[in-house]
Design a protein around this nucleic acid. Structure first.
Length: 292
DNA sequence: AGCACA
């Protein structure tokens, strides 16, 4: 017998996906914010990425998505057949996943070969592996050492934690419930580099800033507790916690926008021990913290 | 939905 399903996540969902409450080596960072799989239609927050060269590294996939607002983690999967490599990138919500999809779909991934990315919504959300020590990206290598390319059936759905089935882009998908294709014309021949210098804007339109605004904190949140969580990330400078009336808010200053973004993406929606109203909500602050 | 300190 396993544990009874916790109803607190979504009492309206008949079989809520169970996210184990263990923290993967971290004391203050939970697994996934509570926004994960809620409604069936807009609830997909994982992207399916194809069109990758066969020598792609998981690190490259991670670097491709890590700056996108709301990014959580990704996994690279070497499928058993041919040279096909696919990746999955998971975001905090459907909205941020779509934003990343639109900004990266069709982008030339390798100028040498001219291969460009094809990104669509995954058929189901990725779940973080239970294995401790899993970093910000995960590699699944199903390539067989012996030549085994004569099989027609996909043999990659053996485990239940398989997030989504990669479909061959050349063959028509015979699903009766076809995932709607992205409305972006993928024919556009844009050689846009993924790392173009642009004033990074978050999903909600806020301007990137090296100071973060943190809300949805519990009334008993302490500065030390928050500082402990933030100082795990490089470039963390200082923290200011101020309680205005009821809910406290905080400002966390980082060396640069990049470091602030990293911390925001990593900590978005995560719980502190003092949290009582759900995970932290983190945005870019409207102005940088003054120098001490 | 909540953004201060100078």
């Amino acid at each position: 017998m396993t544990h009874p399903p916790p109803l607190r996540y979504d009492p309206y969902y008949p079989q809520p996906p169970y996210f184990p409450p263990e923290n993967y080596g971290f004391s203050t960072i939970p697994t996934v914010p509570a926004t994960t799989t809620r409604d069936p239609k807009g609830g997909i927050n994982t992207l399916f990425v194809s069109g990758l060269p066969d020598d792609v590294k998981a690190r490259e996939i991670h670097n491709l998505f890590r700056r996108r607002p709301g990014f959580e983690f990704c996994q690279l999967k070497y499928t058993g057949r041919g040279n096909q490599v696919v990746a999955f990138a998971t975001f905090v919500n459907h909205q941020s996943a779509m934003a990343a999809l639109h900004s990266l779909n069709g982008v030339k991934f390798d100028p040498q070969t001219g291969s460009s990315l094809h990104i669509e919504l995954a058929r189901s959300n990725s779940r973080r592996k239970n294995k401790p020590g899993s970093g910000p990206y995960i590699v699944i290598d199903k390539r067989t050492k012996s030549s085994n390319d004569a099989h027609e059936t996909s043999s990659d759905d053996g485990d239940s934690d398989d997030p989504s089935r990669p479909n061959n882009p050349d063959s028509a998908n015979q699903d009766d419930s076809v995932v709607e294709k992205s409305e972006v014309a993928a024919e556009a021949d844009n050689t846009l580099a993924p790392e173009t210098e642009q004033a990074e804007k978050a999903v909600d339109g806020t301007q990137a800033c090296s100071t973060l605004f943190i809300a949805n904190l519990g009334p008993l949140c302490t500065e030390d507790e928050l500082k402990q969580a933030l100082s795990q990330y490089p470039g963390f400078n200082s923290l200011k916690l101020r309680a205005r009336g009821g809910m406290p808010v905080a400002f966390a200053d980082f060396e640069g926008v990049e470091q602030a973004s990293e911390a925001m993406n990593a900590l978005q929606g995560s719980l502190l021990s003092s949290s009582d109203r759900g995970g932290m909500h983190i945005e870019y602050a409207r102005s940088k913290m003054r120098k001490p």
